[in-house]
């Protein structure tokens, strides 16, 4: 089991390389795809800029602070989408019976599904998020410490992992309800929209839901609050953002269990 997990990244990279090579066979097309991905995903930030042409503060956040919140949200979703976004196609594979092809190979079905038709042009979103993050740093007046810097990097990793886990949970659910890809999207892409804004503007119920039910608040909101020295809502301690790696581990465990259960169900019901 441990051995299988350790081998997985190498196997994943092997499959991904193949798709990267085939994508880069048409470099001009690839560059166009990346640029268009940056522009399309960047429209969300344009909306925020427009909003701030009328407001100075939104939900207690200045434009620079909003930019940091937006950038961390977009970057974490972008990484999750880049590395595991393809997994949502599992529903189609179940329906068409092509998942069988993955089950006869000496590489775990999860690795094959996650690497399925890997699209390097999805790197457009994290790139765009990086630009916004740089913009945020120029406008922010943060009292930077080493702890805060590490916190920011760790939280981007943890946040990406949380989004990844949500992708996998959505995919696992498709073993039960085959056409539920859209439902899963409402949590991932929909959740991403939520995490672009200070959560308090959505009301306490939403804040509770994304803290305790689907812990998307740990993706970026709580870590950013910590970096910006802002108090946490619901009377939660301000260091709650430090818990995001722990939440990520928990979500991964949950997603792994769900995936295994889904696959077991498939293998015992057939196609």
């Amino acid at each position: 089991m441990v051995e299988r997990v350790l081998r997985a990244p190498g196997q994943y990279w092997m499959l991904v390389q193949m798709w990267i090579r085939s994508t880069l066979a048409y470099p001009a097309s690839f560059v166009m795809m990346v640029i268009s991905a940056m522009l399309i995903t960047g429209t969300d930030f344009v909306a925020i800029l427009l909003m701030f042409s009328h407001l100075d503060v939104f939900g207690g956040f200045s434009l620079g602070e909003m930019a940091l919140l937006y950038a961390t949200s977009s970057m974490t979703l972008g990484f999750a989408d880049l590395f595991t976004g393809s997994i949502e196609r599992v529903g189609r594979r179940i329906r068409e019976g092509t998942l069988d092809a993955y089950l006869i190979r000496p590489v775990p079905a999860f690795v094959q599904t996650a690497a399925d038709e890997f699209r390097l042009d999805r790197i457009g979103r994290p790139l765009q998020a990086l630009l916004v993050m740089i913009l945020a740093f120029t406008r922010l007046d943060v009292d930077w410490t080493v702890a805060k810097g590490i916190m920011l990097v760790v939280s981007v990793v943890a946040g990406s992992v949380i989004f990844t886990a949500v992708f996998v949970l959505g995919a696992a659910f498709q073993f039960i309800a085959i056409d539920s890809a859209e439902l899963a999207n409402s949590f991932t892409y929909g959740g991403s929209t939520l995490t672009q804004y200070p959560l308090t503007v959505f009301g306490k119920e939403i804040v509770r839901a994304v803290t305790f039910v689907v812990p998307l608040a740990f993706v970026n909101y709580y870590p950013v609050l910590f970096v910006l020295d802002k108090p946490a809502p619901l009377g939660l301690p301000s260091w709650i953002g430090l818990l995001s790696p722990a939440v990520a581990v928990l979500m991964v465990a949950l997603a792994a269990l769900a995936w295994r259960a889904g696959l077991r169900r498939y293998r015992s019901t057939g196609s």
């Binding site: 069988d100 089950l103 006869i104 077991r264 293998r267 015992s268 057939g270």
Partner: peptide, 12 residues
């Protein structure tokens, strides 16, 4: 096909 799938391990 069910037999083949059991022989390959796809089906339990």
């Amino acid at each position: 096909s069910t037999t083949i799938k059991m022989l390959t391990g796809i089906l339990v």
